[in-house]
């Protein structure tokens, strides 16, 4: 065989196993799913072709819209909660405003290693009517009959979950920002200080422009990560009570595996994919806009 031929063959041997597994588990199912989403099928018998019926059904279902609202709230706390908080924490450690910054870094990053299922059950105990929050408010208000009942409120039931999402993932963004802040040339900061720039000016004029890129990259990760939230909420509330804390992934799970409507489940999966694409494109659009402004 020719040298070029061996080279090509080696390239194929190296990459094909990974491509094969990736394609058969991720790409092929997505394509298969497009077909599935146009059918009505209970898992047994022949699927019935129903065109856009399942999509129409989703759009007419208030449970879906409440789930979408909860998903968007999760996107919002990720982008406007975790990212700024993570940045503030990283900045404090990077600028050595506290001693033992390293210790704090290790502590705050810790929750990321704990399984979402464990985190959910732990916090469910804290927010449950017999949990820590109830007990704390009783002590503070001196009212032994107080019971924390936020999960009974349709609009507010998602709040404890949003809080836990911030608790769990802020450390991740902090670590990412610390790693990137440390790449900034220290001379830049020194010369800014010599020129008499204040702490605030250094942050706004020197550091943030250098970090715009990474902030937007993490924003994209935060957005796609937000649509992944299933385990945490499932172990927390299973989407209940009465769908109050449901997100689209749970809506999909229940319709497919509890009510055996595979076509509908397929259609919801398509909606999840479309939503991630739309939100990522929006983020990219905003990024391009900002990039121009900073150049």
């Amino acid at each position: 065989m020719t040298v070029k031929g061996t080279r090509k063959l080696s390239f194929a041997t190296l990459t094909i196993p990974a491509v094969l597994i990736y394609t058969s588990v991720i790409i092929f199912p997505i394509i298969f799913n497009i077909g599935l989403s146009f059918t009505k099928w209970s898992g047994l018998g022949t699927p019935q072709w129903v065109w856009f019926d399942q999509y129409r059904r989703i759009l007419g279902d208030p449970v879906f819209w409440h789930g979408l609202r909860n998903n968007l709230l999760i996107v919002a706390v990720s982008v406007f909660g975790q990212i700024p908080l993570g940045f503030i924490l990283a900045y404090i450690i990077y600028r050595r405003m506290v001693t033992a910054g390293r210790f704090f870094e290790v502590m705050i990053f810790l929750p990321i290693t704990i399984a979402p299922v464990v985190v959910a059950i732990l916090w469910n105990q804290i927010f449950s009517p017999a949990g820590i929050v109830t007990e704390l408010v009783r002590i503070i208000r001196n009212d032994p009959r107080y019971v924390f009942k936020i999960f009974e409120n349709k609009q507010l039931a998602i709040l404890p979950i949003l809080f836990v999402i911030i608790w769990m993932y802020t450390g991740l963004y902090m670590v990412i920002y610390i790693a990137n802040l440390q790449k900034i040339n220290p001379e830049l900061l020194e010369s800014a200080t010599i020129d008499g720039a204040s702490e605030g000016q250094i942050l706004v004029r020197v550091i943030i422009p250098l970090m715009v890129h990474i902030i937007f990259t993490t924003t994209i990760f935060a957005v796609t990560g937000s649509l992944k939230s299933f385990d945490l909420i499932w172990a927390f509330t299973q989407g209940g009570p009465a769908h109050y804390t449901e997100v689209i992934a749970i809506y999909m799970y229940l319709n497919t595996f509890r009510y055996y409507n595979y076509g509908l489940g397929g259609a919801i999966s398509m909606v999840i994919i479309l939503l991630s694409i739309i939100i990522i494109l929006l983020t990219l659009f905003v990024y391009k806009h900002f990039e121009k402004k900073y150049e």
Partner: peptide, 24 residues
């Protein structure tokens, strides 16, 4: 192309393939 193809996977959530994966 292959590299871009894999990078795209970073943005795909497991839940979006769960139903077809189960069927397959």
């Amino acid at each position: 192309i292959i590299y871009a193809f894999f990078i795209m996977g970073l943005l795909i959530t497991p839940h979006s393939v769960l139903v077809p994966l189960f069927v397959l």
